[in-house]
Amino acid sequence: MSLPRIMVAPNGATKTKADHPALPITLDEITETALACRAAGAGALHLHLRDDAEGHLLDTGAYREAQAHLRPRLGDMAIQITTEASGRYEPGHQRYVALNSGANMVSVSTREMLRDPEPLARKFYEEAAERGIAIQHILYSREDAEALARVLPDRLLQDPGLQLIFVMGRYVEGQVSTPAMLDPFLNWMQAEAITPDWAICAFGQGETACLRNALEKGGKARVGFENSLVMEDGSTARDNAARVAAIAAL
Rank of each mutant, 00 (worst) to 15 (best):
25 I>P: 02
93 H>M: 07
168 M>G: 05
201 C>L: 10
195 T>G: 06
196 P>C: 10
20 H>V: 00
64 R>L: 07
102 G>N: 07
221 A>H: 06
57 L>A: 06
121 A>N: 03
73 R>F: 06
168 M>F: 13
3 L>E: 06
46 H>M: 04
173 E>Y: 10
246 A>V: 05
143 E>H: 14
177 S>P: 07
232 E>V: 06
249 A>L: 02
83 T>I: 07
170 R>N: 13
214 A>T: 04
61 G>W: 04
110 T>V: 15
229 L>S: 08
195 T>K: 14
151 V>M: 06
195 T>I: 00
116 D>R: 08
61 G>T: 13
108 V>E: 09
171 Y>P: 04
59 D>S: 07
181 M>H: 04
135 I>T: 01
76 D>S: 13
68 A>M: 00
2 S>C: 01
6 I>F: 10
87 G>E: 12
219 G>K: 10
38 R>C: 01
191 A>H: 12
248 A>S: 14
88 R>W: 02
67 Q>Y: 01
6 I>D: 06
6 I>P: 03
82 T>S: 15
42 A>P: 03
20 H>M: 00
58 L>W: 13
26 T>G: 06
218 G>L: 09
141 S>R: 06
226 E>M: 00
222 R>Q: 12
75 G>C: 04
105 M>E: 12
107 S>Y: 01
76 D>M: 02
171 Y>N: 12
109 S>W: 02
91 P>Y: 09
44 A>D: 03
30 I>W: 05
158 Q>N: 12
65 E>N: 10
66 A>P: 03
49 L>Y: 00
166 F>I: 05
113 M>Q: 14
59 D>I: 01
29 E>Q: 14
178 T>R: 15
243 R>D: 00
172 V>F: 03
103 A>M: 02
238 R>P: 00
135 I>A: 01
138 I>P: 01
25 I>W: 03
157 L>G: 04
173 E>G: 05
245 A>L: 07
184 P>F: 09
140 Y>H: 15
13 A>R: 02
64 R>M: 12
